[in-house]
Simulated assay, not measured.
Amino acid sequence: MSLGWLVRRILLALLAALGVSVLVFTLLRLVPGDVVTQLIGLEGNVSAEQQTEMRRLFGLDQPIWMQFGTWLVALLQGDLGVSLRTDRPVFQDLLLRFPVTLQLTAMALFFAVLVGLPLGVLAALRRGQAADLLSSGFVLIGLAAPEFWLAILMILLFSLNLGWFPPNGYVSPNESVWGNLRSMFLPALALSFSLAAATTRIVRASLLDVLSQDYIRTARAKGLRAGTVVMRHALRNAMIPVVTVIGLQVGNLLGGAVIIEQLFGLPGVGRFALEGINLRDYPVVQGAVLWIAVSFVLVNVIVDVLYSVIDRRVVYS
């Protein structure tokens, strides 16, 4: 893997993230109503002159292309703007909220791999047997069941009935590490179900394909132990499609975090973006979407790099 390829890949990824932001910027302004409309609803009667002055102060009286140009110039200087509701820098709020979303996504990814990888291997090695049928049922439920529905069931069972975990709220690790893990366990578990199911399915399919290859039969004919054949020869070569699926699903985790953070009251980037949408706070929504998009495309770059680490035959130039 050359440095030039990596630089080009990152630049293309950032351009893709910028394209997403342009789309969001445009669509937000096509939605009826704006932050002034929201404020009028809270403050009561406001004259037309006052509304016009408020839109001028917020810069909403300018053409869309001029608003975008102002935002883009500020973005190139590292400024994501200021919230129209709180007057706080959006970048500062994102820095405060991103660790929550990052921890949620990382824990969900850990749970998904912890369950999906061994279950997929077991299903491939026990093809057509009870373990394979049970894993197929898990995959079907995990892919079909909505995350918010699973989250609500978990709250009812583990929080309200059993009292093992808090139903909502967030505890910072600076306050209590154990309290932080308890507050994040259920949200991460609910978010991990679909990825665990997808991982199980792709591991099973990929491993079955590799186990039918000639070099695997040769390794078995040499008298190598079954565990050695599977772990050292088969599983390593079956991991490229698995890494691809996991990398793509990270985007779904970031998207699903919006609903999960709202349900469990977590102060993450997803909930921050949802609040901005409800309040028509354009800088907040634009900054949060750009932040998520950049995170997603950078994950894809990392996945591409992992290809060459897993399989030395993959070379980028």
Rank of each mutant, 00 (worst) to 15 (best):
Arg9Leu: 02
Leu23Val: 12
Ser212Trp: 01
Leu72Lys: 11
Pro167Met: 09
Arg29Cys: 00
Ile152Asp: 11
Ser192Val: 03
Pro63Ile: 04
Thr244Pro: 08
Trp5Gln: 15
Leu80Asn: 00
Ala288Lys: 08
Ser172Arg: 13
Asp93Met: 11
Leu160Asn: 14
Asn161Phe: 15
Asp34Gln: 01
Arg225Val: 12
Leu157His: 04
Thr228Asn: 04
Val115His: 01
Leu150Asp: 03
Arg232Asn: 07
Leu195Trp: 03
Arg204Pro: 08
Gly179Lys: 07
Leu76Asp: 02
Ile152Phe: 11
Phe165Ala: 14
Ile240Phe: 07
Gln213Asp: 08
Val305Glu: 05
Asp93Pro: 02
Gly78Ala: 10
Val289Trp: 01
Ala17Glu: 06
Arg225Leu: 15
Ile202Leu: 02
Ser136Asp: 10
Phe165Arg: 09
Leu186Ile: 10
Gly69Arg: 11
Lys222Phe: 10
Arg220Leu: 11
Phe98Pro: 01
Trp164His: 12
Gln103Val: 13
Gly276Arg: 08
Pro173Cys: 04
Ile202Phe: 05
Leu23Lys: 01
Arg85Ser: 15
Gly128Phe: 07
Ala112Thr: 04
Met239Tyr: 03
Ala74Thr: 02
Leu12Asn: 12
Val121Leu: 07
Thr200Tyr: 01
Ile141Phe: 15
Gly120Phe: 05
Ala288His: 12
Ser172Phe: 07
Val301Pro: 05
Leu76Glu: 02
Thr105Ala: 13
Met184Asn: 10
Leu28Glu: 09
Leu57Phe: 13
Leu57Trp: 14
Leu96Asn: 14
Gly59Arg: 09
Pro241Gln: 09
Glu275Asn: 10
Val20Gln: 08
Leu75Gln: 06
Thr70Ser: 06
Ala257Ile: 02
Leu189Arg: 09
Arg236His: 11
Phe58Ala: 14
Ile240Gly: 08
Arg236Asn: 14
Ala144Trp: 11
Ser194Lys: 10
Phe58Tyr: 15
Val46Thr: 05
Leu248Met: 15
Ala131His: 12
Tyr215Met: 02
Gly59Met: 00
Leu117Phe: 13
Phe296Arg: 00
Ser172Ala: 12
Val297Cys: 05
Gly179Ala: 09
Val230Phe: 00
Pro63Phe: 00
Ala48Glu: 15
Leu160Met: 13
Ser176Asn: 12
Asp304Ser: 11
Trp65Lys: 06
Asn278Thr: 15
Asp304Lys: 13
Ala112Leu: 10
Ser212Glu: 14
Trp178Lys: 13
Leu263Trp: 02
